[in-house]
Each structure stands twice: as C-alpha cells, then as structure tokens.
Amino acid sequence: MKKDIILCGVGGQGILSIATVIGEAATRAGITLKQAEVHGMSQRGGDVQSNLRLSTGTIWSDLIPRGQADLIISMEPMEALRYASCLSADAIVVTGSVPLVNIPNYPPIEQIQQSLSSLPHCVSLDIDAVAKQAGNPRGANMVLLGAASAHLGILSQAQIREAIAVVFAPKGDAVVQANLKCFDSAL
C-alpha cells in the first residue's frame, strides 16, 4: 500500500508543519517515508511544495513520478492547480479556497474554481475562516490537514492527532490544544 502526496502552497503558509506532522505519524506507525522539501529562495513568498511519499514497502525516488500522486493538499487554490498534472486518475485534491494574491497577474478566481471543480475529486474549504472560528487563526494548516485526513488512508485520523500532540508539545499544551481544535473542526 502506498500514498503519494503533494503538499503545496505559498512560502510562509506552513506546509512544512503539515509535512512534519504526517512524517511523525508515519514514523510512529512504522510506515516507510520520503519527504522532499523546498528550502531557500522560494520560501520568500514564492510557490512551495513538498513531495511526501508513504508506503508499506520500499520507496526509491524522493520525487513522485508524474501521474502517480494520490492526493494534493494545498493551502491555496491556484497552487493546487499547479500540480494537477502530477495526479493519478482517481486522485483527490483538498485545498484552501481563499486565493493568496501576491502577484499582479493572478488569474480570475472564477476560472480557478471552475478548473478545480472539473477535477474528479476536489474538496475546497475556507480554512482561514474555520481556523478563526476555532479560535486559532494561525492554525489554518491544521484545518487543512483535518480536511485531508479522511483521504490519507494509510494513516488513521487518531494517528495524526497523536502526531500533532507530539510535534507541537515543545511549544506547550495550549498550542497543542489549539492545533488539535483546528484539526478536529475540519473532520
């Protein structure tokens, strides 16, 4: 069993934290994992992505071959589309719905929504609003992870919850609880 995931968004949106949580959950569950990250220049407001590969068998490449990604988890709707060509036929896209416009030529949001809805399986969610409602506006990435957790397959939602507790433990119990609340509010 394998799950190839593309995590994406804009530099600074917190996709590496999502990757860290899934990575922790996979390690605790004894699942093989490779996770290619983007560091450096792109983290300054550019497009960023992480290839996260989970498997019960051997993983060779750190990068996901084209057409084999099972799941896109995106903080931002246009960024979800950037990697659509990587998806397999029955793949799922889970994305934040609110555009982050920091370029002058950002396409009309209607076009983006239309393209997203033409994909076989797309879940689009206002993650910022949900995070705010949950009382933790900085937890939008955990809201997104909550929304995606039903589609991870190889890891259970309980395993992800456990990993959130472990990853954020150094920042104190309040941070752990705030992030768990965000995660739970999108289940």
């Binding site: 804009v10 530099g11 220049m41 792109s42 983290q43 300054r44 407001g45 550019g46 497009d47 084209r66 057409g67 246009m78 960024e79 589309l81 950037r82 659509a84 060509s85 998806l87 397999s88 036929a89 793949a91 920091n102 370029i103 030529n105 950002y106 396409p107 009309p108 076009q111 983006i112 393209s115 994909l119 076989p120």
Partner: peptide, 15 residues
C-alpha cells in the same frame, strides 16, 4: 497525465 488542458496557473516567483 490526468490533465492535458491549459490550467489557469501563473508563475509565483519569490519576493
């Protein structure tokens, strides 16, 4: 590839 059609995606350089 799943999609071959042109998608509305603009480059997003770092800044």
């Amino acid at each position: 590839n799943l999609t071959s059609s042109e998608l509305p995606v603009a480059p997003r350089p770092p800044q």
